[in-house]
């Protein structure tokens, strides 16, 4: 089964992803909707290395399908300027039973956060910007553009 993978600026049609996940044999559909959290920010900007990100997302989805017997997977990541509360990442996974669907969704989200080249820059309510700390020891935080 071919996963649905997308990186886009526009919002995500979650209902359509859920409908598409209800394939024959599916008894559980898990939806993860990651949203912009209000950590004292007005908005965040997301950027990506799109060609590589799409390739890695596709690999993560195919690995999830094989490892957790998933019946369908959709991963949609948004980029651009997003306000607090907006959707950032949708992962929709279906399986015969809930355990595989939940575990598969969690594993794919963890992999995505660790490996896919996407970055977030937060615009603080009090002014200034800060890049969200990524996954690497020793990486200093600080206001952009300094690192």
């Amino acid at each position: 089964m071919k996963p649905y993978i997308a990186i886009q600026t526009e919002d995500v049609e979650i209902d359509a992803l859920v409908r598409a996940a209800k394939v024959p044999g599916a008894g559980a559909v898990v939806v993860f909707d990651g949203v912009v959290r209000d950590d004292g920010i007005d908005r965040m900007d997301l950027e990506t290395y799109e060609s590589v990100a799409l390739e890695l997302m596709d690999g993560i989805a195919r690995e999830g399908i094989a490892r957790f017997n998933l019946l369908s997977v959709a991963i949609v990541h948004r980029i651009g300027a997003l306000d607090v509360g907006e959707n950032i990442l949708l992962v929709v996974a279906s399986a015969g039973h809930r355990k595989e669907a939940f575990e598969g969704a969690i594993a794919m989200i963890d992999e995505l956060k660790a490996r896919v080249p996407i970055w977030k820059k937060e615009h603080l309510r009090g002014g200034g910007t800060v890049w969200v700390e990524g996954n690497a020891e020793g990486f200093p935080r600080g206001p952009g553009p300094s690192v």
Binding site: T48, H77, P117, I118, K120
Partner: peptide, 10 residues
């Protein structure tokens, strides 16, 4: 070649 800091998507 691409050069970048640690990723922070999701």
């Amino acid at each position: 070649i691409a050069v970048f800091p640690p990723v922070a998507g999701g």
